[in-house]
Design a protein around this nucleic acid. Sequence first.
DNA 1: CAACCAATTTAGCCTTGGCTAACAATGCGG
DNA 2: CCGCATTGTTAGCCAAGGCTAAATTGGTTG
Lengths: 158, 158
Amino acid sequence: MSDDSTPQRPFRDGPSHDALPPVAQHARQYETVRNAHETELIEDYVELIGDLLDHRGEARAADIANRMAVSQATVSKMIRRLNELGLVTSQPYRSLFLTDEGRKMAQTSRGRHDIVLHFLRALGVPDSTARIDAEGMEHHVSDETLAIMQRFTDEKDA
Amino acid sequence: MSDDSTPQRPFRDGPSHDALPPVAQHARQYETVRNAHETELIEDYVELIGDLLDHRGEARAADIANRMAVSQATVSKMIRRLNELGLVTSQPYRSLFLTDEGRKMAQTSRGRHDIVLHFLRALGVPDSTARIDAEGMEHHVSDETLAIMQRFTDEKDA
DNA sequence: CAACCAATTTAGCCTTGGCTAACAATGCGG
DNA sequence: CCGCATTGTTAGCCAAGGCTAAATTGGTTG
Ligand SMILES: [Mn+2]
Ligand SMILES: [Mn+2]
Ligand SMILES: [Mn+2]
Ligand SMILES: [Mn+2]
């Protein structure tokens, strides 16, 4: 079996690289990312539905499709999945509602999203860029880092 | 067609939410994330192959599989894709090499990755958490934000 | 140098998340 | 209350990225 166990550099005078992390730790990095990818789209849908309900009073599939820049068919299919996951309730051809679990997820996701967005702004990133970056970053920030971002923003805003 | 154009709150005394962004801007957020998802796995492979070549002198499929915590079959299939994309060269059953384009992508990705990782550490995030977060975040940080992170790290380290 | 073991590849399967085209229901304007 | 535009659903397609099982190759060792 291929070794890859004892970190060593064949050339002592090459450019100064950081050493590779141990295999187990390295593997955990990628696993964590793959896990995040499994839930992030779900979170974005639920969060958006919650926002639409809060701001508009209703969440219609057409609005979701427009905001996500995705076809109505894609939204319809995803709504079926959200239903199976117990996150939304919906009667055919009518507006959506979140279950208790869905509301909880929406709140959590919105919270993370806001912390990341406000952090980026506090760091000096212009709003429109901060919004774009936050949409992707939010799913990959650990609770630990999130707390640090929150603290940074609070101090900056004080 | 469903309106969703004039941002308005039905209840003036609800909890204070940020307003929804305009539809076009909101859509661009999600589009950008979808685009990043199309390239991020490729980037991770190429970056890892570059690291293995630098640190070990060779990049074997089994090592990639171990480090990514993925089956060898998955790696083999992905290598075919990287080949088709002109990022690696490989003879069957032998170690991998990067093309010029592959080396360029590896360098760019490694650069982004390091900036994000060093930024998180400068922010006070413990190393092992910073590594995990950086692995996911790196693909969603704009050049603009990256520059700001770089500056922050430099000042902190000075 | 034969045999075995590790590494690699291939085949075939699955889920997710996109799409288009065709069809069905809703709900208004007249 | 009818007709028609808008909205929502369904069917069927595709690519990406995982997996297991089986076949193949290559290297090492007795
Ligand atoms: Mn979000
Ligand atoms: Mn998001
Ligand atoms: Mn990386
Ligand atoms: Mn990565």
